[in-house]
């Protein structure tokens, strides 16, 4: 028995060490990025490499911001898009998820399967028709192609919210219906307040998605004034030789930072949210 216990303890220690090593490996690129972002350029090209810059160059950050062009404008555009798309997604997905979970109507589950099937369509496949559709609407070179679709409920978000809505007891709505509540009031006053954590998760996902989106802005935006951070960063690194590593890393750090901040602020919801995406259906 004591041998078994010792073995178990040893194994746990080994796993712990393994995890430590993995954690270090996963953190290394971040550390490398920050370290590079604080070095002068010639120190980035030094062999053997050093983890700690000889002299910390905070001004790399201000210079990177300048080199990227209108960094603050890009940040503003990105943020603006994020907020609108989050609002649109929350509203439309919650409505659709409600229709797919809290109201019994004929053919509902079949239609829902259809919704899930749309998740299978890869974006590159419908890229050209989307483009020609927005072209016909005269929206090329505006933000509209990037935020209007958010108001039409993406299948993934509907799925997540529906999973959550299903867990709310049916009696709740039944009681309200008997009291003569309209569906929209049940939705707004009973279900939505209960679904706050799920809404938060969907909002977070959408925020991340918009913040990270690259192909959309690449196709639809024509004016440099309208660039998002992702597009601005790619533009910057495709100019010249793309080897101003200290600036590139500083700029990357700045683009990543808000996302990480948001993650740390809402970590629990976030991880739970990701975990539910894999829930069996």
């Amino acid at each position: 028995m004591s041998v078994a216990r010792r073995n178990r303890r040893l194994r746990r220690a080994a796993v712990w060490l393994g995890l430590c090593l993995c954690a270090l490996l996963f953190l290394a690129p971040f550390a490398w990025m920050v370290s590079t972002s604080l070095k002068p350029l010639d120190e980035t090209m030094l062999l053997p490499m050093k983890w700690f810059p000889g002299k910390i160059q905070w001004h790399n950050y201000t210079e990177a911001i300048e080199a990227m062009g209108d960094f603050w404008l890009y940040a503003w555009n990105t943020f603006y898009l994020c907020v609108i798309t989050v609002a649109g997604t929350l509203l439309s997905s919650a409505l659709a998820a409600y229709g797919f979970s809290r109201i019994e109507w004929r053919g509902r589950d079949k239609v829902f399967l259809l919704a899930l099937a749309t998740m299978m369509i890869p974006f590159p496949v419908i890229m050209v028709p989307h483009y020609s559709l927005f072209k016909a609407l005269g929206w090329i070179g505006t933000f509209k192609p990037l935020w209007v679709p958010a108001f039409f409920a993406g299948a993934f978000n509907v799925f997540l919210l529906r999973q959550f809505f299903m867990t709310i007891p049916k009696d709740l709505s039944e009681a309200a219906r008997i009291d003569g509540c309209s569906e929209i009031r049940i939705f707004w006053q009973i279900i939505l307040p209960l679904a706050k954590p799920a809404l938060l998760v969907v909002g977070l996902f959408q925020f991340m998605y918009t913040w990270n989106d690259f192909l959309g802005p690449l196709i639809y935006l024509t004016d440099n004034k309208d660039f998002t951070l992702a597009l601005g960063l790619q533009e910057y690194q495709s100019q010249g030789g793309g080897t101003e590593w200290h600036y590139l890393m500083a700029a990357s750090t700045l683009v990543i930072l808000p996302v990480l901040a948001l993650f740390f602020a809402t970590q629990r919801y976030f991880i739970e949210g990701v975990a539910t995406t894999g829930a069996k259906n």
Partner: peptide, 19 residues
């Protein structure tokens, strides 16, 4: 820590890994 990298925007990811 293990989850963090999956938050990194694609563009940043590419820039970092190019380096």
């Amino acid at each position: 820590v293990i989850f963090l990298p999956s938050l990194v925007p694609m563009v940043c990811l590419a820039v970092i890994w190019r380096w």
